[in-house]
């Protein structure tokens, strides 16, 4: 555990409602610098919605998100500009651009050559393009895709597409990287490789927040794990604390010997209600 460090991300009282449906309910959440934090929870617990609130894709109904002490505006490109980069649960690469171009797009916020400089092609433009390309190639070497720089992203194998998405996010020079299910669909070897990659990213001084269903992956990797159930934060703490918590087990597996067999969902609802009886959210 890394304590005594400054918070990178602070979410205060974040609530997201879609009409009558509350997907995320007053979640307080902090990520400190140099930390790898995991966010777990059953399907539909609101993890991705919470991610979208953090990155400005959704405007939270209530609450604020701040990065290194400044409150973030709810615009995705400004959030990225501030220093939070993300990947997506279902890979969203620019499929018909090359590997290198994908990473170069990630450099967008850290370069500022506009239309005029592109048209006039002064020395500044060429220098900036060259620097961008060098930086992008460094990142491709870091994730091990340098030899595929001219392949179209769509033609990469699945695991490499995930890696490329991470490289693209890193290109924006973030202080915090959000990974939405980075190992979904990967085989065990690829998952282990991703583990190494996440450690390497942390060693670069970038804090990582990840959503994941692979528990072994999460508990191996994370300094701290938070559990989201039905839009609310159930527990937060080290791997040991979370693994031992009965409410977490109940949320995932249903409470043992209670309720009819096969009614795991009912048990899940009961678990959530036990935690906070006053509200009756129907977050799916």
């Amino acid at each position: 555990m890394n304590n005594m460090t400054t918070p990178v991300l602070e979410a205060r009282d974040v609530t997201m409602r879609f009409g009558g449906l509350t997907a995320v309910r007053s979640v307080d959440f902090t990520v400190n610098s140099g930390e790898i934090v995991g966010l777990i929870g059953p399907n539909g617990a609101g993890k991705t919605t919470f991610f979208n609130c953090l990155t400005g894709l959704y405007i939270p109904t209530e609450g604020t998100v701040s990065y290194k002490g400044t409150v973030l505006p709810p615009k995705p490109h400004l959030v990225t500009m501030a220093g939070i980069a993300r990947t997506f649960q279902n890979i969203r690469l620019f499929a018909n651009m090359t590997v290198l171009e994908n990473v170069l797009v990630g450099r967008h916020t850290r370069t500022k050559e506009g239309l005029w400089s592109a048209l006039l092609r002064g020395p500044g433009f060429k220098k900036a393009e060259k620097a961008s390309e060098e930086r992008a190639m460094e990142l491709l070497e870091f994730i091990g895709l340098a030899d595929k720089r001219d392949h179209l992203a769509r033609n990469l194998p699945y695991g490499e597409q995930r890696k490329l998405e991470i490289a693209r996010a890193l290109a924006s020079e973030p202080g915090l990287l959000l990974l939405d299910e980075p190992t979904a669909g990967m085989n065990p070897q690829e998952t282990r490789a991703t583990e190494e990659l996440v450690f390497a990213i942390r060693d670069k001084g970038i804090a990582v927040l990840l959503i994941e269903h692979d528990m072994r992956f999460v508990f191996n990797l994370c300094d701290r794990v938070a559990v989201l159930v039905q839009g609310e934060k159930l527990v937060e703490g080290t791997s040991e604390v979370v693994q031992a918590d009965e409410r977490v087990i109940a949320a995932y597996l249903g409470e043992p010997f209670e309720g009819a067999p096969g009614e795991a969902e009912a048990a899940e609802v009961a678990a959530a209600e036990a935690q906070n009886a006053s509200t009756k959210g129907d977050a799916q």
Binding site: P76, T80, R92, L93, V105
Partner: peptide, 10 residues
Amino acid sequence: EDETAATAMG
């Protein structure tokens, strides 16, 4: 290619 991803890239 993907407007959402593009905005998320800044």
